[in-house]
Amino acid sequence: NLYFQGLKYMVPGARVTRGLDWKWRDQDGSPQGEGTVTGELHNGWIDVTWDAGGSNSYRMGAEGKFDLKLAP
């Protein structure tokens, strides 16, 4: 699974964008943008601060869902 392989790169400072299971509307800005991981992966959740200004926790394994992917 590509998403599980990418988890080791989901570290503080990593750049991310919305992924396969995104369901959080425009939390990442409008139009959709990139963000920066600000915390360690914990119980399948990870913290992100978006360039647009907001921050929140997103699923990276929790509930079998992956809200994020590494930015290109």
Results as ranks from 00 to 15, higher is better:
His42Gln: 11
Phe66Asp: 01
Pro72Met: 12
Leu41Cys: 10
Gln5Ile: 11
Lys65Pro: 01
Leu20Asp: 12
Asp28Asn: 12
Tyr58Ser: 01
Glu34Asn: 11
Asn43Ala: 10
Tyr58Thr: 01
Gly13Met: 05
Asp51Gly: 01
Trp45His: 02
Tyr3Cys: 15
Leu7Gln: 09
Gly64Met: 09
Gly33Tyr: 05
Asp21Asn: 09
Gly29Ile: 05
Arg59Lys: 01
Gly33His: 06
Asp67Ser: 02
Lys8Asp: 12
Pro31Ala: 08
Gly35Tyr: 02
Thr17Arg: 13
Glu63Met: 11
Ala71Glu: 07
Thr38His: 07
Gly61Cys: 05
Asp26Ser: 09
Asp26Thr: 08
Asp67Ile: 02
Lys23Glu: 11
Thr17Glu: 10
Gly35Gln: 00
Trp45Asp: 00
Arg15Lys: 08
Gly29Trp: 05
Arg15Gly: 01
Arg18Ala: 06
Asp47Val: 14
Tyr3Lys: 12
Ser55Phe: 12
Ala14Arg: 08
Met10His: 03
Asp28Leu: 04
Ala62Ile: 05
Leu2Gly: 15
Gly29Glu: 06
Ala62Phe: 14
Ala71Gly: 07
Phe4Thr: 11
Leu68Asp: 00
Gly64Trp: 08
Leu41Val: 09
Trp24Phe: 06
Asp26Glu: 11
Gly64Pro: 00
Gly54Ser: 09
Val37Met: 03
Tyr9Thr: 08
Lys8Pro: 10
Leu20Ala: 13
Asn56Ala: 11
Pro12Phe: 10
Pro12Met: 13
Ser57Gln: 11
Leu2Ile: 15
Gly53Trp: 01
Ile46Thr: 02
Trp50His: 00
Ala71His: 07
Gly44Met: 03
His42Cys: 15
Lys69Gly: 07
Val37Tyr: 01
Ala62Thr: 04
Ala52Pro: 02
Tyr3Arg: 11
Asn56Gly: 15
Ser55Arg: 13
Tyr9Cys: 15
Gly39Gln: 06
Ala71Ile: 13
Met10Asn: 00
Asp28Ser: 06
Leu68Pro: 02
Gln5Asn: 11
Pro72Phe: 13
Tyr3Thr: 14
Glu63Ile: 05
Gly35Thr: 01
Asp28Tyr: 04
Gly35Arg: 00
Asn43Arg: 10
Glu63Gly: 12
Tyr9Glu: 10
Asp47Leu: 14
Phe66Ser: 03
Trp24Leu: 05
Thr17Asn: 07
Gly13Arg: 04
Asp51Ala: 04
Lys65Asn: 04
Met10Thr: 03
Phe4Leu: 12
Ser57Pro: 05
Ala62Asn: 07
Ala71Trp: 07
Ser30Val: 14
Phe66Pro: 01
Tyr58Leu: 02
Arg15Thr: 02
Gln32Tyr: 11
Trp24Cys: 07
Gly54Asn: 10
Glu40Ser: 12
Pro31Val: 08
Thr36Phe: 05
Asp26Ala: 08
Gly6Ala: 15
Gly39Thr: 11
Asp67His: 02
Met60Tyr: 10
Trp45Cys: 05
Ala14Val: 11
Leu20Met: 13
Gly61Trp: 04
Val16Met: 01
Trp22Gln: 03
Tyr3Asn: 14
Pro72Trp: 13
Ala14Glu: 05
Gly64Tyr: 07
Val11Tyr: 09
Gly35Val: 02
Trp22Asp: 04
Glu34Lys: 12
Met10Phe: 15
Leu20Pro: 14
Gly33Cys: 12
Tyr9Ala: 09
Thr49Phe: 08
Trp22His: 04
Leu20Phe: 12
Lys8His: 11
His42Pro: 02
Pro12Gln: 09
Gly53Lys: 03
Asp47Met: 14
Lys23Val: 12
Leu41Asp: 03
Ala14Gly: 03
Val48Asn: 00
Gly53Thr: 02
Asp26Met: 08
Gly13Pro: 03
Gly29Lys: 04
Tyr58Gln: 03
Tyr3Ser: 14
Asp51Arg: 03
Ala14Met: 09
Ile46Trp: 03
Trp24Glu: 06
Pro31Glu: 09
Asn43Glu: 10
Thr38Glu: 06
Ile46Cys: 05
Arg18Gly: 03
Gly53Met: 03
Pro12Ser: 09
Ala14Asn: 05
Glu34His: 13
Gly53His: 03
Arg15Leu: 02
Asp67Phe: 04
Phe66Lys: 03
Glu63Trp: 09
Thr17Ala: 11
Trp45Leu: 05
Arg59Met: 02
Glu63Phe: 11
Asp47Ile: 13
Leu41Gln: 07
Asn43Gly: 10
Arg25Asp: 15
Val16Asp: 01
Phe66Gly: 01
Gly39Asp: 06
Gly53Val: 01
Thr49Asp: 09
Gly29Phe: 05
Trp24Gly: 07
Gln5Lys: 14
Tyr58His: 02
Gln32Lys: 11
Gly53Arg: 01
Asp51Leu: 05
Asp21Gln: 04
Gly61Val: 02
Ile46Gln: 01
Asn1Val: 11
Asp51Trp: 01
Gly44Cys: 03
Gly44Asn: 02
Trp22Thr: 03
Gln27Cys: 08
Gly6Thr: 15
Asp21Met: 04
Arg25Phe: 14
Val16Gln: 00
Leu70Gln: 07
Thr38Val: 13
Phe66Thr: 04
Leu68Phe: 02
Glu40Phe: 14
Gly35Ser: 02
Ser57Thr: 12
Arg59Ile: 02
Thr38Leu: 09
Ile46Asp: 00
Trp22Asn: 03
Lys8Glu: 15
Ser57Tyr: 10
Leu2Trp: 10
Tyr58Pro: 00
Gly6Trp: 15
Gly33Gln: 08
Val16Trp: 03
Glu40His: 13
Gly13Phe: 06
Asn43Tyr: 10
Gly44Val: 04
Leu20Glu: 11
Phe4Asp: 15
Arg15Asp: 02
Leu7Thr: 08
Thr36Pro: 02
Ala71Thr: 10
Leu70Cys: 13
Arg18Pro: 07
Glu40Tyr: 14
Arg59Val: 00
Arg15Gln: 01
Gly44Gln: 02
Gly61Met: 00
Val11His: 09
Asn1Phe: 10
Pro72Glu: 13
Gly13Cys: 10
Trp22Cys: 06
Gly44Glu: 01
Leu70Trp: 09
Met60Ala: 06
Arg59Ala: 00
Pro31Gln: 08
Gly19Leu: 06
Asn56His: 14
Gly33Ser: 12
Arg18Tyr: 06
Pro31Phe: 08
Gln27Tyr: 05
Val11Trp: 08
Ala62Trp: 13
Lys8Ala: 12
Ser55Pro: 02
Gly6Pro: 09
Val11Asp: 03
Gly61Ile: 02
Gly54Lys: 08
Tyr58Ala: 02
Gln5Trp: 14
Asp28Cys: 06
Tyr3Asp: 15
Pro31Tyr: 08
Asp21Gly: 05
Lys69Asn: 11
Trp24Ser: 07
Trp45Asn: 00
His42Ser: 11
Gly64Phe: 07
Pro12Tyr: 11
Glu40Val: 13
Leu41Tyr: 10
Phe4Gly: 12
Met10Arg: 05
Thr38Ser: 10
Asp26Tyr: 07
Asn56Thr: 04
Pro12Leu: 13
Lys65Ser: 09
Leu7His: 09
Ser55Thr: 14
Asp47Asn: 13
Ala71Lys: 09
Leu7Val: 11
Val16Ser: 00
Asp26Phe: 08
Arg15Val: 02
Gly64Gln: 07
Met60Asp: 00
Thr17Phe: 06
Val11Cys: 15
Leu20Trp: 12
Trp24Ile: 04
Lys23Tyr: 06
Gly54Glu: 10
Val48Gly: 00
Ala71Met: 10
Tyr9Asn: 08
Glu63Val: 04
Leu2Thr: 14
Ala14Ser: 09
Gln5Pro: 15
Val48Trp: 02
Gly19Thr: 06
Leu2Val: 13
Tyr58Asp: 00
Val11Asn: 07
Gln5Tyr: 12
Tyr58Asn: 01
Gly13Ala: 03
Ser57Cys: 15
Gln27Leu: 06
Trp50Thr: 01
Gln27Asp: 10
Arg25Ala: 15
Ala71Tyr: 07
Gly53Ser: 03
Gly6His: 15
Asn1Thr: 12
Phe66Gln: 04
Leu2Glu: 15
Trp24Tyr: 10
Lys8Phe: 11
Gln32Phe: 12
Asp67Cys: 03
Leu7Phe: 09
